[in-house]
Nucleic acid binder design. Sequence first.
RNA 1: CGGGGUGUAGCUCAGCCCGGUUUAGAGUGCUUGGUUCGGGACCAAGAGGUCGAGAGUUCGAAUCUCUCCACCCCGACCA
Length: 577
Amino acid sequence: MRLSHYLVPTIKEIPAEAESISHRLMLRAGLIKQLTSGAFSYLPLGWRVLRKIENIVREEMDAIGSQELYLPALHPLDLWIESGRASVMDEIMFKFQDHKGRWMCLGPTHEEVITDLARSFVHSYRDLPQQWYQIQIKFRDEVRPRGGLIRIRQFTMKDAYSLSTSQEDLNEWYLKNRQAYTNIFTRTGLRFYIVGAHSGAMGGSGSEEFMIPTPTGEDSIVVCDTCGYLANLEVATSKIEHHEKMDVPMENVSTPDRHTIEEVAGYLGVPEFDTMKSVIYMLVPEETPLLVLIRGDLEVSEAKLEIALKGHEYRPAHPDEIKEMSGAEPGFIGPVGLKRKDVRIIIDDSIPEGVPFISGANKDNFHTKGVTRGRDYDGESADLRLACEGDFCTHCDAPLRTERAIEVGHIFKLGTKYSESMGATYLDENNLEKPIIMGCYGIGIERIMAGAIEVNSDENGIIWPMSIAPFQVIVIPLDKRNEQIWSKAEEIYRRLWESGVEALIDDREASPGFKFKDADLFGIPIHIILGKRAIESGNAEVKVRKTGVRTDVSIESLLADPLKALPWLGDETLSRP
RNA sequence: CGGGGUGUAGCUCAGCCCGGUUUAGAGUGCUUGGUUCGGGACCAAGAGGUCGAGAGUUCGAAUCUCUCCACCCCGACCA
């Protein structure tokens, strides 16, 4: 392509609305243009990168025997009501009525449509296994889009769905996809972690996320540098130090108007870890209270709570419900002396038996000292604690650290959640009707682009890995008046395309510095610079963007065989982080 | 959804607190002419804005008040 007539609106100033590195550079290099919150136009340069990413994804999916198809983004809402997810996904779904008044929505994901397809066409165990995938636009009315392409309301996802007859077969597909993802993220030049994750609204048993470590990320992951343990913060396990067991009697103490842990600990002059926190929820649909107990200085992970409740729905309790359960205002709640007797109690491992804590007294303006599990109360045990920087690894006891990261891929063992609710079944060898066992596997295409920039840039701009660079080479002729320079540049440019190399030529009437700055900003891996010196010496200057190394290469050899003259084109290290 | 912030030329922003010397500005980009040509060149001339929208206060509003809208950031939430 010729830069003189190519839509690449570069900007020198740092755009005001952009905070993250990738967002700034995508705007500055003319890759994207925001239309409205969470929706972007992809300009020619950016679109080329996205298509390259898609192609890598496609190759790796095809390689594991996954079949590409294409589903509609327009769904009847009925399908979502049938699966039971219309309510769960309600907040993020774009919904509207068609001209007949029928409720429709734009697909935030495609489990429902796939399951519908499966129940239409899969009838026998002989039809299985299958894996289907698509590269499709998803719509999610996110409450807060952010970070350029990190979280958007219209985005492209590769979503794949495996259909199996057994858990073993699902495991096999899961591992195949896991390997394909590893290949994809390696080929796209990303540094990534595979971390244990929470299944969330998708349901199902096991799941892992592929994470790109960068401060821009909106997820936190827990890392053990000693044994390599990795997990999403919401499900990460850790060890903490416990207090000594002691036998001290319970004693009520006055704590006027001290509601929070911080206030109570401060007022009583004790550290926060001597106190116990009571968090109250209501179980749905029973409308019975759930009391969660955790040490005062720690936080409950709602993801872990969901796991402990095995998917049982719950909601935060209202203040009047708390009062009815406990007899006291929120802030003075504890496990001993509750008014209601049907309270389900779940206790985090940070509250061991025999260790006294200070808890609410279930009496306004009072707390109780010496409240001891096993002696004064008890409940179900669970790990509900949000891990913290400095906690210890449950596998090797080394201290843990946390890191921010972008989620670019997520793989799930769904099981039979959708096949059961939507009746996607098959007949097995014994003529028994069985639900199909499903897995699902997603990749955010735009996030790969953003992530690649987050991981690979410098103060001058983007540094694309060769594999997803919009162009591999840019030819930069200097001094517009010098016809020799110009004609050589044109010749080289033509030879590059003839040899199958995607090349740009900067044929704009601009000063050398201007062209150099833009070439760096675009992040094209290889720059071929032609100035007066080149004509005099017969050598063009070849600069590698990633290393900054400049090498003289004879114009003659470039014209004879560009692929041979530019060994960097095949240099694998230029596609590695 | 809670908290914070922004909205003035294509872009980045000043002016607003303290209303009137501002005929709304700067830099950059754009147009024309000339010079320059290896790290965002220089000179000259020019085009370009209902100051986010509406209402109000006032002799007078970019500037004060109210309502609304849009966008960004932090948090909550989130395959």
